[in-house]
Amino acid sequence: MKDERQRDGLVDILLVEDNPADVNMLRESFRESKIGNELHVVNDGERALDFLHQRGAFTTAPRPDLVLLDIGLPKMSGLDVLAEIKADPDLRRIPVIILTTSESEEDVFKSYDLHANSFITKPVHLTQLFELLKTIEDFWFGIVKLPSR
């Protein structure tokens, strides 16, 4: 619920990304963001599902308000993770944004077929990335009404 999110003033974002350089870059960028956020990072698909199901090493993990999901992940691809999230009645309401280097139309189709909430190709340039994260925050935590947790 929005109230709950406002209580600690933080939104929880789960980033599923295996490339440490990208993780670091996004962390840096989110740090500059106006909206208070807690960025949780897991580096493969299985851990992402453990996090979401609050099991294994993640029993105390919060339920994220937003998932940023890469496609090219070790073990389990991002699309597999997406499929599982969207097939789960408990998890499917969490907005999932595919954030990937891929510009392939096939990945776009597959993602939306699996009910991704949006598909974003990682911008090449830093200023574009800053802008993108600001837009994500403005839209998902400013404009959009999210379901209660």
């Binding site: 490339n19 350089a21 990208d22 870059m25 280097t101 090449v124 340039h125 830093l126 200023t127």
Partner: peptide, 12 residues
């Protein structure tokens, strides 16, 4: 992907 990293970190 590596190109991305090169670009964004140089810019950073």
């Amino acid at each position: 992907e590596p190109l991305h990293t090169i670009t964004s970190y140089t810019e950073l």
